[in-house]
Design a binder for these strands. Structure first.
Ligand code: FES
Ligand code: FES
Lengths: 156, 156
DNA sequence: CTAATTTAGGACAACGGAGTCGTAAATCTT
DNA sequence: AAGATTTACGACTCCGTTGTCCTAAATTAG
């Protein structure tokens, strides 16, 4: 798995929240049950996102989490970096310390080229882009969760 | 880490063996000490490579492992597939089951494009290519192992 | 003020990857 | 045939990720 489970949960939740926090906070229990993620586990993942300034959280009745910025201002890169860190965007393919032209491994040239592309895509893809994509028909957000059929329950 | 430690060890060892098995088998203990990998652990990794038909092994004095085919006929893809499996080349970025156009996730388009590139690079890069690259000056094969300075100990 | 709701956070179990160690099996050397 | 060498393989430990559960703190509703 290229991304950790925590990271995947964070991305899915962010997309979900982006579509549902228009009128206030979205409760973590709602996200967890819709996306079929363990509630307590998701709690910790979203805590990381709030600590990184990507989300705001609020306790008490009608509390929950909400995006700290507009969905167009949060990139996939931000989400991955907040949870899994930036290693995936900078690390040597063979796991050697200090990837760079000064100390390249045999796969360096090809790998860095691919990494640069990945980084570019991740930085350009905003939460809004992902949400728009997800709202198209038949696009899945989680295993048993189709964005389109749940938005207003039958957007068609 | 994009590749498992086992996989990285397997790749490094394969490059090493490709350069050293001209006159017979290379012992695993030699590979392990040169590349600074745990001997017993490496033993199991290389067992996988022999079971997958990438290497031949031979027991007894002057035994060890050797490539089953020419180094130009073993691709990086073969090595990764043999140890980590093909998930990295086929799996959904969000870990959803059944990645495909029929059931895409929001990141599908960009991710598959990148995956296809990765697959192409891995399939085109042969052990020979990697070995040639590694034999260039200053190219690392492992953390404390420079190919060029160990080949004949001072190739310059 | 009290009770209900909801996030925060600690303790702990389950699991798999990584690594260690001991013994068996094959093969060569003498 | 005996002993040395080297891979094969099973049992075990260690540790980070994932997941469960319980309690504390903040906040709202009545
Ligand atoms: S040094 Fe290995 S990818 Fe750069
Ligand atoms: S379905 Fe997620 S990458 Fe294809």
């Amino acid at each position: 798995m290229i991304l950790s489970k925590s990271c995947i949960y964070g991305i899915q939740s962010a997309i979900y929240v982006a579509a549902h926090d228009a009128d206030g906070y979205v409760s973590i229990s709602q996200i967890a049950s819709e996306l079929q993620i363990s509630f307590h586990f998701l709690t910790k993942v979203l805590q990381q996102l709030t600590q990184e300034g990507i989300m705001n959280s609020y306790r008490g009745p009608r509390g929950g989490v909400a995006l700290a910025k507009g969905s167009a201002d949060v990139s996939l890169y931000d989400l991955i970096a907040a949870i899994d860190g930036t290693a995936i965007f900078t690390e040597c393919m063979l796991g050697l310390p200090g990837c760079g032209v000064a100390e390249p491994c045999p796969a360096h040239d090809h790998w860095t080229k691919l990494r640069v592309e990945l980084t570019g895509i991740a930085k350009r893809l905003s939460l809004k882009d992902l949400g728009d994509k997800a709202s198209e028909l038949n696009v899945r957000l989680a295993k048993e969760f189709r964005y389109a059929t749940s938005q207003t329950n039958g957007l068609k």
